[in-house]
Amino acid sequence: MLTAFAPLLRLQNEMNRLLEDFTEDLPLARAFGQRYPAVNLWQDGEAGYLEAELPGLTMDDIEVLVMGNEVTLKGQRKIEAPENATWHRRERSHGSFTRTLSLPWEIDPDKVEARLQDGVLTVKLPKCESCKPRRIAVQAA
């Protein structure tokens, strides 16, 4: 029964994403969008590497949570704003954000490393032993 609905659920997901993209482009939508922060991901045989640009934040402002194959980035950005000033530009967003990503492998939670340098967060997400690529010897019959 579930599989019959799968294409519909996918469509719903896609529609949600389209709507998010649309609202994020609106100049008045100043608060963090659903998909903040933007992330890049690359991998090698050992681990995946998740990177996000989080300028102005320190490690005290960020939480990285790992469970199963999911990683969650949580945080808060405060921007000082004097009251008796004239604003000419206000482009940077502030507030709280949460974003969860699912990876196609189980993460080994004991070996996760997170580093924040010059406003760039890098999280190393090691693959669990059974998820690493392995060369299989092919036996001749």
């Binding site: 004097p82 008796n84 004239t86 604003w87 482009e91 940077r92």
Partner: peptide, 8 residues
């Protein structure tokens, strides 16, 4: 880059 500019 995204900026904030204010004037006192």
């Amino acid at each position: 880059p995204l900026v904030d500019i204010y004037e006192t």
